[in-house]
């Protein structure tokens, strides 16, 4: 149906004649670029003139009190929520506001949800299989066959997330922490250019937190087959943030309150007032 619609629009290049996924253009530095983004729900401004730039290969932590707009920001980047105004660019070529969720995902933006969301009815192996970077159109999915190379890739990730012995268990039986790992594993399977990670260590033990921190720092800047990976972490746990953060952005009432190194940010009186002051 879409094809017919496109054929009628003769002023545009047919999408089937365009290269399927054009590479992300990061020659100018940033991989993600949000400018003057605002969105409101029933008069409540969840995001208010937000400006944010993530450089290619960067690991960025985003903190902020509840309702600061962190999750809404992720929703906007991944196409779930449309902002009322502003622009969002992936590299300098892709306008994310013109794309839907699957298109954004196949561009190479992966997301881990705040509440771990895995496919509980499927096994861990199957969860990873579905996440694997592949042709995700309907017919190729129908005829897709498992082969040694794919199996190896899944095994590799299973080892990383430490679930290799439970691979044929349904994801529904996993503990909260294990689900977090599985979701991280699914992110890895996607081989994204940009990882959006929402509260990754909630429900994890100290050791698991350390492993996560190690994994995330290793991922950022890592050169995969597509290019360098960048990571954006939203987290409440200040200890965890301190352990991984190079640059920290503080969100407050939908806009950036402060940005810089952890030390610089945590000594900023504005930040202390709205955020750190409450919890510490």
């Amino acid at each position: 149906m879409n094809l017919i619609k496109e054929l009628a629009q003769r002023d545009q290049v047919f999408s089937f004649m365009m290269p399927s996924v054009s590479p992300v253009d990061v020659r100018h530095g940033p991989i993600l670029y949000l400018e003057d983004v605002s969105v409101s729900f029933d008069g409540f401004k969840a995001i208010n003139n937000l400006n944010l730039t993530i450089d290619d290969g960067e690991l960025r932590c985003i903190i902020g009190p509840n309702g600061a707009g962190k999750t809404t920001m992720m929703d906007i980047i991944t196409g779930k929520t449309r902002p009322d105004e502003g622009s969002v660019w992936f590299g300098s070529r892709h306008n994310l506001l013109q794309m839907n969720e699957p298109e954004i995902a196949s561009l190479g933006i992966g997301r881990k949800f705040q509440k771990p969301t895995v496919f509980e009815a499927l096994t861990i192996f199957e969860n990873l299989e579905l996440a694997m970077a592949s042709d995700k159109r309907v017919l190729p999915t129908l005829t897709a066959r498992m082969n040694g190379e794919k199996r190896d890739r899944i095994e590799e990730v299973l080892t990383i997330i430490g679930l290799e012995t439970q691979r044929y268990q349904r994801a529904g039986v996993l503990s909260h922490g294990q689900k977090q790992w599985l979701e991280i594993g699914m992110l890895l399977m996607q081989q994204p250019r940009l990882l959006l990670v929402d509260e990754p260590v909630a429900g994890m033990t100290e050791q698991e937190m350390e492993r996560t921190a190690e994994l995330l720092t290793r991922l950022a800047g890592h050169k995969s087959s597509h290019g360098r990976q960048s990571v954006v972490v939203v987290e409440h746990d200040m200890g965890f943030v301190r352990s991984i953060a190079r640059t920290v952005t503080v969100l407050h009432q939908g806009s950036v309150l402060a940005e810089g190194s952890m030390d610089k940010v945590s000594s900023d009186p504005k930040v202390v007032e709205v955020y750190l002051g409450e919890g510490h």
Binding site: P102, A105, T117, V118, K136, R137, V138, Q190
Partner: peptide, 12 residues
């Protein structure tokens, strides 16, 4: 089971 999640994996 998780329509939104599936979308974020790149499935239409």
């Amino acid at each position: 089971d998780a329509e939104a999640r599936t979308r974020f994996l790149g499935y239409r």
